[in-house]
């Protein structure tokens, strides 16, 4: 899969992340989305449209218009 990122393009797509609608730049991978959201470091897991987006494929899995994304991490719990 080729990554066609064009930084000069300002087009955005609407997606839902953790229940909130957001506009994000077009052409982001999951990895790019995490960076865009400031989520660098730490262990997160991502669901795209109810399917796990495996960590090993974060850079290849592309975000598309209308996607529903869940991003979770470990927090304190009993």
């Amino acid at each position: 899969m080729s990554k066609t990122k064009n930084p000069s393009m300002s087009k955005e797509i609407a997606i839902t992340i953790n229940g909130d609608e957001r506009n994000v730049p077009i052409g982001l991978s999951v990895e790019g989305l995490l960076a865009h959201l400031g989520l660098v470091g730490g262990k997160v897991a991502v669901e795209r449209n109810k399917e796990i987006a495996p960590r090993s494929q974060f850079s290849q899995t592309m975000i598309e218009q209308g996607d529903t994304i869940e991003i979770v991490r470990f927090v304190g719990g009993g």
């Binding site: 953790n18 909130d20 730490g42 897991a45 991003i71 979770v72 991490r73 927090v75 304190g76 009993g78």
Partner: peptide, 15 residues
């Protein structure tokens, strides 16, 4: 440990 949504309004909160 529990698994919960990341807080997107404060991505720098303690981990």
């Amino acid at each position: 440990v529990a698994v919960r949504r990341v807080n997107l309004t404060n991505p720098d909160e303690p981990m």
